[in-house]
Simulated assay, not measured.
Amino acid sequence: MTTLRIGIQTGYWSRKPPTGIVEALQQAEAAGLDSVWTAEAYGSDAFTPLAWWGSHTSRLRLGTGIAQMAARTPTATAMQALTLDHLSGGRFVLGLGASGPQVVEGWYGQPYRRPLARTREYVDIVRQVIARERPVTFDGEFYRLPLPADAPGATGLGKALKPTVHPVRPEVPIVLAAQGPKNVALAAEIADGWMAGFYAPRTDAEHRELLAEGFARRADERSRPEEFEVAATVPVVVRDDVESAADVVRPHIALYAGGMGAKEANFHKASLDRLGYGEVTDEVQRLYLEGRKEDAARAVPTELVEEIALVGPAAKVRADLARWENTALTTLLVQGDAAAAAALLG
């Protein structure tokens, strides 16, 4: 059994819900799996599957990885966190992320400007709601509670409220998804964990420096650095042949480097660029945006796949896992099927 906690990242749905996942999670829970995480883009949401799947398990931590902040007001998100924490008996982890301008402005119709400042305000309000110490008030640049009487369209009847539901815990763990250096440091400063994208063990020292920078700015003693969760989604594909296993991951990398974000603002591509693959991802993005998705996938080198994924025979996958065990990671989230998770748990 690895020293890392092993979870499953189910992601967001494509055309329909995944099949057989309840049984797979029950089996994985019995084998020692730590957690299950969900995501959302502009289809399935991150909270509902956790409620359904979580009701069929008893020990798994249930995390949103991630819930998009633009999708809900901070108080609405806190309500969902309170509800799921009750229903799961205190197993919920709130993973939040800013997403990107294409989704935030295109899908939610919200401005994307100053995402770090907006995140600070959002987390502050969520913590106020869950703590339930007093009626929630906030006077920020992005959120004002209650809405001032002189605000456009306001009636002036707004009242400071606190949730009717008493929390299971005074704090629900908050994990921030972050890829850029400033965002990573922010997660260490204000959150209980960081969810990384395209984590490569080779750059672990840089990640540790950014986390240390954030820890040094903490204004409270809410949690110690040694209790901070660092999670990363790692594609895991078990095949007899490394190249065939890498072929499963290549389209995923091509999608994120080429199509998940505007050409001028693709944070996933930027993460891969920082690993030294700028020329590769430029070509992948060019091919993808031209509609040549299969060519874009073929342009992803096996070297890059092996940097951010675990691929190949089961024995190789388990041996390669040691590279992640020696990093700042505390939780490795398997992106793959139940057999992939079993290979690591075994």
Score class of each variant (00 low, 15 high):
residue 155 T to S: 14
residue 173 P to A: 02
residue 209 E to D: 12
residue 180 G to K: 12
residue 153 G to A: 13
residue 168 V to F: 13
residue 201 P to A: 03
residue 190 I to P: 00
residue 175 V to N: 01
residue 204 D to H: 04
residue 200 A to H: 01
residue 183 N to Y: 05
residue 213 E to G: 10
residue 153 G to T: 07
residue 153 G to I: 10
residue 171 E to H: 15
residue 168 V to S: 05
residue 154 A to T: 11
residue 171 E to T: 15
residue 154 A to L: 12
residue 170 P to R: 11
residue 211 L to W: 13
residue 195 M to T: 05
residue 176 L to G: 00
residue 173 P to G: 07
residue 178 A to D: 01
residue 193 G to Q: 05
residue 201 P to H: 08
residue 151 A to N: 06
residue 164 T to L: 14
residue 186 L to M: 06
residue 150 D to G: 00
residue 167 P to R: 00
residue 212 A to W: 06
residue 176 L to D: 05
residue 214 G to R: 04
residue 185 A to L: 00
residue 167 P to S: 05
residue 161 L to G: 07
residue 171 E to C: 13
residue 208 R to T: 13
residue 144 R to N: 08
residue 157 L to R: 12
residue 174 I to H: 03
residue 143 Y to K: 08
residue 199 Y to S: 09
residue 143 Y to P: 02
residue 177 A to V: 09
residue 153 G to D: 11
residue 214 G to I: 05
residue 157 L to Q: 13
residue 182 K to E: 13
residue 154 A to N: 11
residue 173 P to T: 02
residue 210 L to I: 02
residue 191 A to Y: 10
residue 183 N to H: 09
residue 166 H to V: 14
residue 166 H to N: 14
residue 182 K to F: 08
residue 184 V to F: 05
residue 212 A to K: 09
residue 201 P to R: 01
residue 147 L to R: 15
residue 190 I to G: 04
residue 154 A to R: 12
residue 198 F to L: 09
residue 211 L to Q: 08
residue 194 W to S: 03
residue 189 E to H: 04
residue 208 R to Q: 14
residue 164 T to I: 13
residue 172 V to W: 10
residue 196 A to S: 14
residue 156 G to F: 03
residue 181 P to Y: 07
residue 167 P to G: 03
residue 197 G to T: 15
residue 180 G to Q: 06
residue 157 L to A: 13
residue 179 Q to A: 13
residue 174 I to M: 00
residue 201 P to K: 00
residue 161 L to Y: 14
residue 199 Y to H: 13
residue 178 A to V: 02
residue 206 E to H: 11
residue 183 N to L: 10
residue 153 G to H: 04
residue 201 P to I: 10
residue 155 T to F: 10
residue 161 L to H: 06
